[in-house]
Amino acid sequence: MASQGARTAAAPLDLAGPAAPPRRNGELVFEAPWEGRLFGLTLTLHGQGHFEWEEFRERLIRAVARRERAAAAGGAPFRYYEAWRAALEDLLAAKGLCGTAELDTRERQLAARPPGHDHGS
């Protein structure tokens, strides 16, 4: 556990600036479980060398800026981790790791599960 901590502590998260995740007194704030999952997925992929942090960060900054502009213009309210997910999906597609089409398909499959599917797990 200690070595795990030492390794993950080095994740190059921005503390400030346009791509910095929401924090409360330094601690990351997840409004819903999927946000934490998404965050963990991203850091795991990076930790395993599937991409450089800067490649993700550039996309995140762009995704955040686009959504903030849209929200300011009266569009959908800005949601940080929704921008994060768009950035990750974009990067994974660009890297050929996971395409948008297969993701759409999987999402439809999951949506078609009968209710109560996950209560046994």
Binding site: A32, C98, R106
Partner: peptide, 11 residues
């Protein structure tokens, strides 16, 4: 949001 993220993780 849950579904999309779950789909991503499962893939």
């Amino acid at each position: 949001d849950d579904l999309r993220t779950e789909a991503l993780e499962s893939l």
